[in-house]
């Protein structure tokens, strides 16, 4: 019998079978834990998303609502639709800037430069700081009246800005904070990727008469594609789920202009006691993340193969 892709032959020898036994022992605890704390909860959430549930009544008594929660979210929940738009903007702005800035600064640090370690440490500091602490710091720094940014702006004779309290600036300011927080992480990732490109490739390019730009375009970029893929995909998945930062700065205000999907989920679940609707929201977000991830992987991978 030929072994299928998912079911290899059970080995006949006792030695191999003992080995197999140990393999099961090794995977048992982690897999059970993942089933209990990931797979099971996902199914349960899916089930709840088809009901109305206030989290207080017994699970068995949830009234059945079919797809009503999904329909409501996609057609009538204006906050959700607003939050989706904001979250997309947040992800596009954050991922775009972090990719460009991360790569740019990594290129700078990869060139002949003094004190590479010190620079890296400085840029990396926000990465290890709790988002909640950064939220508190930046709420003060961007304060309309006492914030240091406005102190500088007005000292320069420019008009004071509302930043986090302005309906047209709150989301932008949050994007800025997110860039600030994570750019150091992507610099380090890109730098590692750059350092993994063998010098021979550049030497060969130089022999072919390629300049700096051409070397970047035809050697660095193609070889960096896997790293790029990693950066774009992980950053997008993270950005689409932003919570701590918004929770502790604007809370979605003013007028939901900085409301994000996960914050709205949190409010729907714990402020409005609508667990079913919050679960449906989580699944819609899940579908969106899947779709975007698959698209990104396709796009960046295919082009990697073409080159």
């Amino acid at each position: 019998m030929k072994s299928s892709w998912w079911m290899p032959d059970i080995p006949k020898s006792a030695v191999l079978r003992r080995r197999m036994f140990w393999a099961y022992v090794f995977v048992a605890a982690p897999v059970v834990a993942l089933l209990v704390f990931l797979a099971g909860p996902i199914l349960f959430s899916g089930w709840v998303s088809l009901h109305r549930w206030d989290m207080l009544s017994p699970v068995g008594d949830m009234p059945w609502r079919g797809l009503q929660n999904y329909v409501f979210l996609l057609t009538r929940d204006t906050i959700f639709i607003k939050a989706l738009g904001n979250t997309f903007l947040f992800a596009i702005g954050g991922v775009g800037a972090n990719t460009i800035l991360g790569l740019g600064f990594a290129l700078l640090l990869n060139s002949r430069i003094r004190g590479r370690t010190v620079w890296r440490v400085l840029y990396f500091m926000p990465v290890i700081t709790a988002p909640l602490a950064l939220a508190v710091m930046f709420s003060f720094i961007f304060d309309r009246n006492y914030g240091v940014v406005n102190n500088v702006i007005t000292a320069l004779g420019l008009p004071r800005q509302p930043f986090l309290s302005g309906p047209h600036q709150a989301l932008m300011t949050l994007i800025f904070i997110a860039i600030y927080q994570y750019v150091g992480y992507y610099i380090v990732i890109f730098l590692a990727g750059l350092q993994g490109i063998p010098q021979d490739y550049y030497d060969a390019a130089q022999v072919d008469g390629a300049g700096n730009w051409q070397a970047f375009r035809f050697v660095t970029l193609p070889l960096l594609r896997p790293v790029m893929l990693f950066v774009v995909v992980t950053n997008t998945i993270g950005a689409l789920q932003v919570f701590d930062l918004v929770f502790a700065t604007t809370g979605g205000a003013p007028a939901n202009s900085s409301m994000t999907v996960v914050l709205h989920m949190y409010n729907t679940a714990f402020k409005f006691s609508r667990m079913g609707r919050a679960s449906a929201m989580a699944f819609i977000l899940f579908a969106i993340i899947m779709l975007i991830t698959v698209m990104q992987v396709r796009l960046l991978r295919d082009r990697a193969y073409q080159d």
Binding site: A39, F44, V48, M55, V59, S279, F283, I289
Partner: peptide, 21 residues
């Protein structure tokens, strides 16, 4: 593959059920 698939799940999908567990 199951484990790979769970990597993409938003943490919020599991938040409440895990709370119940």
């Amino acid at each position: 593959y199951l484990i790979l698939a769970t990597m993409m799940i938003p943490f919020f999908v599991t938040l409440i059920p895990v709370f119940f567990i």
